[in-house]
Each structure stands twice: as structure tokens, then as C-alpha cells.
């Protein structure tokens, strides 16, 4: 197609106070939307509940990584100093358990730390080079004094009119339907996103 197309990617509602955003988030949660987010300049108490976020799975990732670090460290030391090249230090038997403990501790917290950092990034789908909210010029204020709720167009419940009406019913201070320009590439059919 020769001419540029645009398609709706996001509905963005702006709120003036954290309380408004919190109560609006409760309603979005109750409406059953799945692919949506709240953007605030600072952490808002109670927002986890208002958004209906369950408990993070990060704890399990950290626990499994920590257990791996502990058992991996034990296997490593036991193999190196107890089996492959038995080493007697300070008159202690080769592969003495007590002298391993500081190293097991280090291995445990090292992998637990990796699990926590990289697990957090993965669960947040980071790094993410771009997000459609940045098409909105108003969104800059999110890092200052405004609060936003965005509902993405790939949410199964998303419907351009209905979702816009729904967000209006939450009495935002501003509502923006964010569109994305789809520029067809000269040769292939798929095209790149702007």
C-alpha cells in the first residue's frame, strides 16, 4: 500500500493526583483488562492491590538460584578439594565441610543476587527499547507531577470506542488515543513500525 497507515496502539488517561489514579486503577482492574499499566512519578502505596497484581514470582526464582548456588558450590569444592585433588589444609580432612561454609554462603548469595537482578529484569520485560506511551507528548509529565493509566490495544478486551468511553467514565484530566504510524517498507509486506 502506498500511503501511510496509522493504527491505535494505546489509550492513555491522565490523572492529577495519586488518589485519582489509584481509584481509577481499581476500576480498570475490575473491568477485567489484562494488558495495562499505571505510570506514576513515585511509588503509590496500595497500588499493587488496586492493580490486582498478585505476589511476584521473583522469590521463587531467587530461591531456586540460591539453592543452585549452594549445591553447585558444594559440588565444586567437594570435587576439587575432596575427590580430584584431595587437599589437606591446616590438618583438616580433605573436603572438610566447615571450611566450605563461607564459600557456600558466597556462592549462594552470588547466584541469589543474579537471580534477583536478572529475574526482576526478565519479569518486567526489561530491557525494552521502546514503548508506545512515549508517542504521547504529554507523557513526559509522568516523571514530574502527573499520573497515567495506559491500556494497550493488544489487550483482548480492547475496543477503540468502548475502551475510550470506559476511560472517560473514570474522569481523567485528559484522555489520549495513541496511534502509531505504519510505514510500508518498499519491498517487503511486513513493514517496520515507526
Amino acid at each position: 500500500m502506498p500511503k501511510n497507515n496509522s493504527r491505535t496502539v494505546l489509550a492513555l488517561a491522565e490523572f492529577q493526583t495519586s488518589g485519582d489514579a489509584l481509584h481509577a486503577a481499581e476500576k480498570v482492574r475490575d473491568a477485567g483488562y489484562k494488558r495495562w499499566d499505571v505510570h506514576t512519578p513515585f511509588p503509590v502505596h496500595g497500588m499493587d492491590d488496586a492493580m490486582g497484581l498478585g505476589q511476584s514470582h521473583l522469590g521463587w526464582i531467587v530461591f531456586i538460584m540460591a539453592a543452585t548456588g549452594c549445591l553447585g558450590g558444594f559440588s565444586m569444592i567437594m570435587f576439587m578439594n575432596g575427590v580430584n585433588y584431595p587437599l589437606i589444609v591446616g590438618g583438616k580432612p580433605a573436603g572438610a565441610f566447615l571450611s566450605m561454609i563461607p564459600i557456600l554462603f558466597e556462592c549462594t548469595i552470588l547466584l541469589a543476587g543474579f537471580g534477583a537482578v536478572f529475574g526482576m529484569l526478565a519479569l518486567n520485560k526489561l530491557p525494552q527499547h521502546h514503548h508506545p506511551v512515549f508517542y504521547s507528548n504529554r507523557f513526559e509529565k509522568c516523571s514530574d507531577d502527573h499520573f497515567y493509566i495506559s491500556i494497550e490495544a493488544d489487550d483482548p478486551m480492547f475496543d477503540p470506542e468502548k475502551t475510550a468511553d470506559f476511560l472517560k467514565s473514570l474522569t481523567p484530566s485528559h484522555l489520549e488515543i495513541v496511534e502509531e504510524t505504519v510505514a510500508p517498507a518498499p519491498a517487503d509486506k511486513g513493514g517496520h513500525h515507526g
Binding site: G90, L98, P102
Partner: peptide, 9 residues
């Protein structure tokens, strides 16, 4: 406590 005393023996 245990580690240091056990190691120093």
C-alpha cells in the same frame, strides 16, 4: 565462633 576455633585448633 565455631569456624575460628575449629580452624585454629
Amino acid at each position: 565462633q565455631l569456624m575460628l576455633q575449629w580452624y585454629a585448633s
